[in-house]
């Protein structure tokens, strides 16, 4: 299988990512079970980074540790450092709420609030006490950036639950954009969507890259190849210490290199479909 990449290459993409957000030797535990082991990875500013790998290798776990959503899971614990603009987000004086405001998250299943479209978008700015001259302008801006404005501008007062799945997911992206984060994490954002809705979200990600750092988990390798500047391949391997399967980072590089010229045998097997 040959996968063509259509992302930035060469001059526009530096060899090393300028890491605004980075993991340094991160282990993530659920109780005594170590789900992710020793991941060091820098996510480039204004780049899209894809996390790929077989099911259960800890992609979602790692993603949740990047904005402290893991704090909400009983027994989840992060060791090592996750730095955002040089500061450890698990530091003692860091507020998880502030971290999540700066590093937003879009989930696998669209999860609009049971409120109007307008209130869904305005929710983030409101809870964060962001003062704006006109909430309507902010809502319009966020919906426009999420390529949803034209479809919903006449029904902002209607329930968001009446939208289609693809529209709901773009609404969730718009909702995240509305709090003006620096980073957007997306966990399989298209897995519940049809190809047309998926294509729209991919276009959207390309547009958003100009302003945001985006990290996306995906099972769809064509999608990773289409949208990501860099790709990190993970796999689950047996830990010599205790025999548990734990997620490790196998290879990380520019998407073109990962897909066309992987250096690790496991990466090659996975992307050519011989594995996982």
């Amino acid at each position: 299988m040959v996968i063509h990449t259509s992302v930035r290459t060469g001059a526009s993409l530096p060899d090393k990512p300028y890491g605004q957000l980075a993991c340094e030797q991160v282990d993530v535990y659920y109780g005594s079970f170590r789900a992710v082991t020793d991941v060091s990875l820098a996510f480039g500013i204004n780049e899209i980074t894809a996390l790929i790998g077989p099911s259960g290798c800890g992609k979602s776990t790692l993603l949740r540790s990047l904005n402290r959503m893991n704090d909400l899971i009983d027994g989840a614990r992060v060791e090592g450092r996750v730095t955002f603009m040089g500061e450890d987000i698990y530091g003692k004086r860091v507020d998880a709420i502030e971290v999540r405001r700066r590093i937003g998250m879009v989930f696998q299943k669209p999860n609009p609030f049971p409120k109007s479209i307008f209130d869904n978008i305005a929710y983030g700015p409101r809870v964060n006490g962001i003062r704006v001259d006109s909430m309507s302008d902010l809502v319009e801006e966020a919906l426009t950036k999420a390529a949803l404005w034209d479809e919903v501008k006449d029904k902002l007062k209607q329930s968001a639950l009446g939208l289609s799945g693809g529209q709901q997911q773009r609404l969730c992206i718009a909702r995240t954009i509305a709090v003006k984060p620096d980073v957007i994490l997306m966990d399989e954002p298209c897995s519940a969507l049809d190809p047309i809705a998926t294509a729209r979200i991919e276009d959207l990600m390309h547009d958003l890259r100009r302003e945001y750092t985006i990290v996306i988990v995906t099972h769809n390798m064509q999608q990773a190849a289409r949208v990501a500047d860099r790709t990190a391949f993970f796999t689950a391997q047996v830990d010599e210490g205790n025999g548990d399967r734990t997620g490790v980072l196998v290879e990380y590089g520019k998407t073109a290199q990962i897909f066309e010229n992987p250096t690790d045998r496991r990466t090659e097997d996975y992307i050519s479909g011989r594995f996982g």
Binding site: R101, G104, G124, V127, N128
Partner: peptide, 9 residues
């Protein structure tokens, strides 16, 4: 989760 991910307490 959606609410907390937006920075709500």
């Amino acid at each position: 989760q959606g609410s907390l991910a937006l920075g709500a307490t």
